[in-house]
Design a protein around this nucleic acid. Sequence first.
DNA 1: AAGACGAAAGTGGTTGA
DNA 2: TCAACAACTTTCGTCTT
Length: 297
Amino acid sequence: MGIESEKDNQTTICPECGGQAITIENTSEIVCSKCGLVINERGLDYNHSGKRAYTQQEKKARDRTGSPISNLIPDMELTTVINKRDIKNPDLKRAAKWDTRMPWAKRNLLIATTELKRISSNLDLPTHVKMEAMRIYRQAFKNKLLRGRSINAMVAASLYFSCRKKKIPRTLQEILEQSNESAKDVKRSYRAIIKELKLKAPNTNPSALIPRFNAELNLNADTERVAIKIVEMFTKYFSISGKDPKGLCAGAIYIATKLKHIDLTQKEIADTIGITEVTLRSRYKEIVKKLNINLPD
DNA sequence: AAGACGAAAGTGGTTGA
DNA sequence: TCAACAACTTTCGTCTT
């Protein structure tokens, strides 16, 4: 395949930070060398015409600068409009256009889409979650929820909501790690989404979270089973509304390790799950009391 | 000395008057 | 809009192993 070599000197500019994008060899992903943004995870179809380009001129003429059409691209017009004027110094021209020509609404959606794709590819989120998040974001945008809130915080919140709705167990922390926004802002946006869009907050199922924490703590399947059982028993008989599901997980895992005579400190569990010892303690005390569990010493 | 415990004070949010 | 409230965190002193 002589086609491969032509991808290498493709220059794309990162819409997020303006850095130079590079192509990852074996996946043909376009990734920003500066901020790590995946600009197009499926790879561009540079040789759609089926012809090879032998000279620079031919290459320029045949290259496609736009991304493949997808629902995640907010404005399909954008790629074609710019294409025509891209012949000289495409990077600068494109960057300049984003600043001056694009209506703010389109720009907003473009930035949002980019951020959304960046985060979800870092977290390996499936496409339907991305689509749902984008839908939520657009709706938030329509309802003017962006007033006084940052785009990126709203994107993170949309993704978080989407994850919960689609039952993909991701904690808010995991999304926050990929975002530059503060937890405060993202939470605010998240609540705004629920309130203003009149959506129901999908509950994270605590037992769905356990296998991942178990893996991080290197616990065996037996312990995991016990922990899940405890969580399910508890959620079946008692309300956990208003409480952090992670706290319940932590408590259940702590009890499970006790029952299985595994030595793990409260601190170790609390730290890997992302809560404090104090919360772990109050949760585990509550579980022991309400479910009448007899702990071995 | 490490781990478990819980009191006290602070944070950021909800609810209801 | 404000006060009461609930959940959680941070910090820290005390007890237990």
